[in-house]
C-alpha cells in the first residue's frame, strides 16, 4: 500500500509536472509541424509518393499501438494491411461500392480478421505470440494467392477510385491526396486519443507488468484483444487506402516481408513514441524509393538496417531525440 502511495506522490511531484508540460508543448509543436507538412507536401513532392508515405505511416502507427503501447509483437500485420486491400478492392471494383464505404467496411473486415487471429494468438505469450501471428498471417497470404477472385500472383488490378460522397472526383490527384491526408490525420488522432485514454493507460500497465495488471483486477486478455482488434482495424484502413491510391491490391502487401517492414519502421522511428512510427515509415519508404535502382540490394540494406537498429538503436530516432531533450514522451 505504501508503495502505491509513494508512486502517487512521485507522480504529482512538481518536477514531473514540469517535464510533462514540456513534453506536451513539444508534442503540440510536432503536431503543428506534421499538419503543415501534410498540407503542403503535394506542392513539393510527387503526390502519389506522399500518399504512399502516409499509408505506411498510418500502418506503422497502428502497429505501434500494439508493440509500443501494449508490448505485443505481432509478426502478422501484413494480413490486415494486405487483407483489407483485397476487401476494399473487391467491394469497390466488383460490387461497385463507393470509395469511402469500401474503405470503412474493409477496415472493419480487417478488424474482424484481427478478432479471429488475436483471440488465438493471445493464448500464448511473448515470443510464441509473434510466431503464432506469423503463421496465421500466412493462411491469409495463401488465401490471397489461391482464392478464385483475388487475381493470384497478379493481385487485384484496376480498382476504380470513383467519386467521394458522389461529388468529388478522386481521379483528380489533389482531391485524392487530401482525401488520403484526411484519413491519415483522422487515424493519427484516433490513435493519440486511444493512447491517452484510461483504456490506453491500462494497456501500458499490461506492457509494463502483466502479472501486476492482472492482480489489480484487470482482465488482461480482454485488453490485449481489444488493442489487437483496434490495431488490426487501423492497419486495415491503411492497407485499403493504399489499394485505392494505387488502384491495385498486391500480393506483396499480404506477404510476411511486409509484416517485417512495418516492425522495422516502428523500431527505427521509436517504439512506444507518438511520432516515431511516422518518422520510421518516411525513412524506410524513402530509402526504398531512392535505392530502387540497385535492385535486390535494397533487401540487404533493409536487413542490415534492422540489425543495426536492434543492436545499437533500440529507442529509435524519436526515442533518442526524447532522451536527449529529456522529455518523457514524444
Amino acid at each position: 500500500m505504501n508503495n502505491t502511495l509513494d508512486e502517487v506522490a512521485e507522480f504529482s511531484d512538481s518536477g514531473q509536472q514540469k517535464s510533462d508540460s514540456r513534453s506536451r508543448m513539444a508534442q503540440g509543436l510536432l503536431f503543428v509541424i506534421l499538419t503543415i507538412a501534410v498540407l503542403v507536401a503535394p506542392f513539393f513532392l510527387y503526390p502519389v509518393f506522399v500518399m504512399q508515405l502516409l499509408c505506411f505511416a498510418l500502418f506503422a502507427l497502428a502497429f505501434n499501438l500494439l508493440i509500443g503501447f501494449t508490448g505485443l509483437l505481432s509478426f502478422g500485420h501484413a494480413a490486415f494491411f494486405g487483407g483489407a486491400a483485397y476487401f476494399a478492392g473487391h467491394m469497390i471494383k466488383v460490387w461497385g461500392f463507393p470509395p469511402l464505404l469500401g474503405l470503412i467496411l474493409a477496415a472493419l473486415g480487417a478488424g474482424v480478421l484481427g478478432l479471429v487471429i488475436g483471440s488465438l494468438a493471445i493464448r500464448r505469450q511473448g515470443i510464441y505470440f509473434a510466431m503464432i501471428t506469423l503463421a496465421l498471417a500466412q493462411i491469409v497470404y495463401f488465401f490471397a494467392l489461391q482464392l478464385p477472385f483475388t487475381g493470384g500472383e497478379n493481385g487485384l488490378q484496376g480498382i476504380p477510385r470513383g467519386h467521394l460522397l458522389g461529388v468529388i472526383d478522386l481521379n483528380d490527384p489533389l482531391a485524392m491526396y487530401y482525401f488520403v491526408a484526411a484519413i491519415f490525420m483522422a487515424g493519427f488522432l484516433i490513435i493519440y486519443r486511444i493512447i491517452h485514454s484510461p483504456f490506453g493507460q491500462v494497456l501500458q500497465a499490461v506492457r509494463e507488468n502483466e502479472p501486476r495488471a492482472l492482480s489489480l483486477g484487470y482482465n488482461v486478455d480482454r485488453f490485449k484483444l481489444m488493442a489487437f482488434v483496434m490495431s488490426a482495424t487501423l492497419a486495415g484502413l491503411a492497407g485499403a487506402t493504399k489499394a485505392l491510391v494505387f488502384q491495385f491490391a498486391s500480393l506483396t502487401d499480404a506477404h510476411w516481408q511486409m509484416s517485417g517492414e512495418v516492425i522495422l519502421m516502428t523500431l527505427l522511428g521509436g517504439m512506444g513514441t507518438i511520432f516515431g512510427p511516422i518518422v520510421g515509415a518516411v525513412t524506410i519508404v524513402t530509402l526504398q524509393h531512392e535505392l530502387s535502382s540497385i535492385g535486390s540490394w535494397v533487401q540487404v540494406v533493409i536487413g542490415a538496417t534492422f540489425v543495426v537498429a536492434v543492436l545499437l538503436f533500440r529507442r529509435g530516432i524519436i526515442g533518442e531525440l526524447a532522451r536527449i531533450l529529456r522529455l518523457p514522451s514524444l
Binding site: 517485417g260 535486390s296 535494397v298 533487401q299 540487404v300 533493409i302 536487413g303 534492422f306 540489425v307 536492434v310
Partner: peptide, 11 residues
C-alpha cells in the same frame, strides 16, 4: 535481429 540477418542472407 535474426530476422534482419535473414533478409541480408536472402538478399
Amino acid at each position: 535481429l535474426t530476422f534482419g540477418i535473414t533478409l541480408v542472407l536472402q538478399g
